[in-house]
Design a protein around this nucleic acid. Structure first.
Length: 467
RNA sequence: GGUGAGGUGGCAGAGCGGCUAUGCGUUCGCCUGCAAAGCGAAUCUAUAGGGGUUCGAAUCCCUUCCUCACCUCCA
């Protein structure tokens, strides 16, 4: 599979010969996660599912930044400990991303649990003369790392001339960034240079190195992390190890709202909780995968609504397949559907192999859905066809992380009972009674599909936006 | 100002030298007791403007205009 690498600005072949190690920069746990975090995490979850579907071993690490000024500020304003803030949002994170059907990473390392690793790294950087101690903390000396700027394509002299770099008189160079900050208040940790807290960037270097080693396959995150976070990670890590840090840098585009970037600092975010209540996991996943991962997508309610229509087609398709009559298809239909199934499956996989083009992949997926629904609409969908289509459809659903709402055996029996009663009323032309039953079924979240000679049903996911 | 990514039909979104995806929308229709769901047909022949290369360009080159992101914490 080929993936676009931000560092080399080219598509690179992903080395899957042994295992694929992925480090994804996770969230700072000081507030609710939002749809922007969601997109990045869903993209990587889907990538991981796709690799695993192919039998490739994946080691997936995603960190939590649980020491940060924002966490401390929040703790102060709520008059609680920093730890209680980060624990709360980490707990929320798991609730929400489980609901989004995101597979758990192999490890979710926390910064606070790796202070020792960071100190070790900083020590070496000082020994190698890449870092120095000032009265405020320990700083990385950017000018010592000659490749600084290679990821973000920035030249250090241009960065200096830009007026937006932080002013700190104790730094030797305005570009230098903190590895360790001296601090009086809590939380703080002892270090050889004095008590304090680690800088933001060093945690990812320390934790990726610890869990994945050097030169691992993919390092990812949102585009906004390219500078300075990932640039600084590269500087620290490569200065420390003298080895290449990551083989491929994969960056996910921003989610905008009304064309404007969504971010906590702008205060225009849509929280995961909000979008889950409004749209549900399947719609959000489809939305997040609707465009190429590297490009921005706009959170627009009309687009989300369209996605509901598509999802209904998928639900219909699935239940038509599952509930099809136990019959043999006519040979022409069989040949045709086998061809379509194979073609769409190939299209789907080829698209994902080509820089993870989820937009193309989902369009192949919908082609298969439509072909199936066509057969259903013309009363030609039978079990032998389902036997061909269903396994492929389920594979695609699984890779995309989509989940069809299912019913229990008990509910199924009840539905069939009610359908029988309704049919009876219908045959007696007691349509009001029949409609009352239809309403009762609909209240269970079940929609009836009246075919010419049979009545099928499907479970529809309840979606908040539909009221 | 610097750097990067883009500008494709009413909308979303692929394609990245020839065969102009796909979906949504809209209109009409099929099906139905009526619906719903689904399906069909029609609609839409689009590639920011201007040059060029080529037998042939949305796709390559030049240029103009515009949008967004990053350059401070951010997924």
């Amino acid at each position: 599979m080929r993936i676009f690498d931000t560092l080399s600005v080219t598509e690179k072949e992903l080395d899957t010969s042994d295992r694929v190690r992925i480090y994804l920069c996770g969230v700072t746990v000081y507030d609710d996660s939002h749809i922007g975090h969601t997109r990045t995490i869903i993209v990587f979850d889907t990538l991981r599912r796709f690799l695993e579907f192919q039998g490739i071993k994946v080691e997936f690490i995603q960190n939590f930044t649980d020491v940060d000024d924002k966490i401390i500020n929040r703790a102060v304003s709520e008059n609680v400990s920093a730890d209680s803030i980060s624990s709360r949002y980490i707990a929320n994170y798991f609730v929400e991303f489980d609901r989004l059907n995101v597979k758990r990473a192999d490890v979710y390392p926390k910064a606070t649990e790796h202070i020792g690793d960071m100190i070790g790294l900083i020590k070496t950087l000082i020994e190698k003369n890449f870092a120095y101690v000032s009265s405020n903390g320990v700083y990385f000396s950017v000018s010592k790392f000659h490749e600084y700027g290679k990821l973000s394509k920035k030249k250090t002299d241009e960065l200096v001339s830009g007026a937006r770099v932080e002013v700190d008189e104790t730094k030797k160079d305005p570009l230098d960034f903190a590895l360790w900050k001296f601090a009086d208040g809590e939380p703080r940790w002892q270090s050889p240079w004095g008590p304090g807290r680690p800088g933001w960037h060093i945690e990812c270097s320390a934790m990726s190195l610890k869990y994945l080693g050097t030169d691992f396959e993919i390092h990812g995150g949102g585009r906004d992390l390219i500078f300075p976070h990932h640039e600084n990670e590269i500087a620290q890590s490569e200065a420390y190890s003298d080895k290449n840090f990551a083989k491929i840098w994969m960056h996910v585009g921003m989610v905008t709202i009304n064309g404007e970037k969504m971010s906590k600092s702008l205060g225009n975010t849509k929280s995961v909780d909000f979008v889950l209540k409004k749209w549900g996991a399947n719609i959000i996943r489809l939305f997040c995968l609707s465009g190429h991962y590297s490009k921005p997508i706009d959170y627009a309610e009309d687009m989300l609504k369209e996605t509901i229509t598509k999802w209904r087609q998928v639900e219909n398709c699935y239940y038509e397949l599952v509930l099809s009559d136990n019959l043999q298809a006519n040979p022409e239909d069989m040949t045709e559907i086998e061809r379509t199934t194979n073609e769409t499956k190939k299209e789907f996989i080829d698209a994902l192999n080509s820089d993870f083009n989820t937009s193309l992949a989902t369009s192949a997926f919908f082609k298969l859905v439509r072909a199936t629904n066509q057969l259903a609409a013309s009363e030609r969908l039978v079990s032998s066809i389902a036997g061909t289509v269903l396994p492929v459809l389920e594979q695609m659903l699984d890779i995309l992380g989509l989940k069809i709402s299912k019913v229990t055996e008990e509910e199924k029996n009840k539905i069939n009972d009610l359908i029988d009663r309704r049919n009876m009323f219908r045959s007696q032309k007691k349509f009001q009674d029949a409609d009352a039953i239809r309403k009762e079924i609909s209240d269970m979240g079940i929609v009836l599909i009246d075919h010419k000679k049979k009545v099928l049903w499907m479970k529809q996911e309840r979606i908040g936006a539909e009221g």
